[in-house]
Design a protein around this nucleic acid. Structure first.
Lengths: 199, 199, 199, 199
DNA sequence: AATGAATGAGGTTTCATTCAT
DNA sequence: TATGAATGAAACCTCATTCAT
């Protein structure tokens, strides 16, 4: 919708706190009062805009859970999908972090994404452990949040902040680091070798 | 100083955006105008309060660079120091993340801390590589920011957010994860050519 | 407009410096914020109110430039028009002098009025000199500002200050003084070569 | 005194309204509170500074009342004295006009100067009329304030405002204009000629 | 639904003045 | 007398929100 699109434009341009309802309606070419026919207030419209983005991240993180094929290759594919979604929505994703610090609803959304992300990683680890690809002494309840923090926060400084990295090398190093942390062996390697110090 | 202490109290209680200069002077039992004898505005007083905290983090991260002794033990000590400083200043540290999104000065401070933290980790990795404790093919320019992201963001969700972890186990898992990522062998282990989980 | 009228009322009653935006909105029966929908600040609204008055003066000073008829009679008519406009807008005219000392825009307006006034007088003198009603050795570049100063400042003390003069006698003395300064002879008098006090 | 001098400096530099007590004590190198040991408030210190200036003008206007000698020459001398004092104290004199619009005491002082100036001119006219140098039909009660307005306001625009005139020519034209207004004949001319149309 | 003028609470900031030392 | 920190009244201005049209 016109106002929703305008809101996202203004938020991305000015940030949440500098954006005023006025700026949004001006951007949309609408009248001041029209805004309140659609949204309760600035928070409300932000929550809606934000949910578009968080949904995209959820998709990137949740999908592709095929249980067959090469584990490392699939992990890498998931990581690449995550990096791409993060980069494409960097501005809004930065804003979600910003607004989460003051809006309980956005904060809850943000936590829910992380929760799901962690959950998905935990499940993967458990599956790998069952298949003997990851040692049983890996504490998934701690390692999963650590890996999610590592990846999401690295993306934050890369795509929202001003750190610059080379795409391929960064993506590969991320996956490589996951592999080292988990001692994740490719199924082939498991077959061939005994097991698992990270290479 | 009275107003500085009050400012920190109010910021930690109400957050940056809900805090007003009025609240601060009320908390300090001072008059409205007194505030402006010491600070230019709310931003200014926040920057000062924040710099106290960022300085504490800097100390935790920078100090203790003895080059002898057990590498893993010293890494663990540094991590513990970091966790303790983060926990002790959790509220303010959360605020720094919050305000960094809108105040360029706080943002620059925040970036500088990260830069120094990464730098310190890079240096450690380089030293370990020279001593043969870490393989040369570890890309410190990417692994250092990844490790810093992992640790700082995990602390954020733990101490500022509402995730709960058991202190000892979390601390040990963090160090353990660093060790796995780097393939860091204790000097002894290097000598004895024996694997083992870090203490 | 409601606020503009209220602003003028308050300015005339309290002066520029004692008037607050609050007083103006209270006088208008409007809300604080309404003011800023129309004006940027107190200065701005004053400039608008002032421009109404300066425009009135400009009209009084510029108009009626018929080139025929009795010179003295027409001079007197112009002077009367000036006195009337000054008296009718005395309060505001005093304020313009007051605010001109601190607001560059009002100051520029004030100067422009004087410039136009002087210019108009200069032109008249030149015309009279061409027609032989005023001697060529009159230095219009100096005499015009002197006459304008005389008239406007006399009005200031009369209508804004507390000096009191009898209307007819003052008006006639002013015109009479202009005539003496310029040695302005009525066309008839020039023809008849007879002196006479201006009507 | 140190504060008085500083006050004048600050007033002349910043104007009355922009000048703060703070600026004055800073200029004087004194402490905030010291000011109130000497003056009641900003108005008070301005009144004192102003009275120095108004006294100078009073002197220029009142003195030199010798009743003998050439009338026009003495008039010119008085006018020159007035111009010189005005020019020398232009900044403060402008401020007096400014502050007179809001401070009753300064306003009264300003009026008193004008009253004395007018009075002095009236007396001169009366004396000249007795001596036959000025016609009896000149209405001194109106012509005196007109001449004072002319001279003082011309000086205002010249020395305080931004109008520029050549000193000698302006001074002579002023006196010349007085002479025309009054039909003032030099005693010599009176003796030689019959009477008095201004040359 | 759309409009946009009007609202007024809420914040910011200044500065003349006081007062304990 | 000198100091300068503290005071607090009084102004300023913004902006989310309402409401009559």
């Amino acid at each position: 919708m016109k106002l929703l699109k305008a809101a996202r434009t203004v938020f991305e341009r000015d940030g949440y706190f500098n954006a005023s309802v006025d700026d949004i309606v001006k951007e949309a070419g609408a009248a001041r009062g029209s805004f309140y026919g659609y949204f309760e207030d600035k928070r409300h419209v932000f929550r809606i805009v934000a949910s578009e983005v968080t949904e995209a991240v959820r998709q990137a993180v949740i999908s592709g859970s095929a249980t067959t094929g090469d584990a490392v290759a699939r992990l890498h594919a998931t990581n690449l999908r995550y990096l791409e979604v993060y980069r494409a929505n960097a501005a809004m994703f930065g804003l979600v972090e910003q607004v989460a610090t003051i809006d309980p609803v956005v904060s809850a959304d943000r936590m829910e994404i992380r929760r799901q992300h962690i959950s998905r990683v935990s499940d993967s680890i458990a599956r790998w452990q069952e298949r003997g690809l990851v040692k049983k002494d890996i504490d998934a309840d701690l390692v999963a949040p650590l890996l999610v923090s590592m990846t999401s926060n690295f993306c934050y400084w890369w795509f929202v902040g001003s750190e610059t990295y080379e795409w391929d090398r960064a993506a590969e190093t991320i996956t490589d680091t996951w592999v080292r942390v988990l001692g994740l062996a490719s199924p082939e390697r498991v077959r061939r070798k005994r097991g698992g110090s990270p290479d």
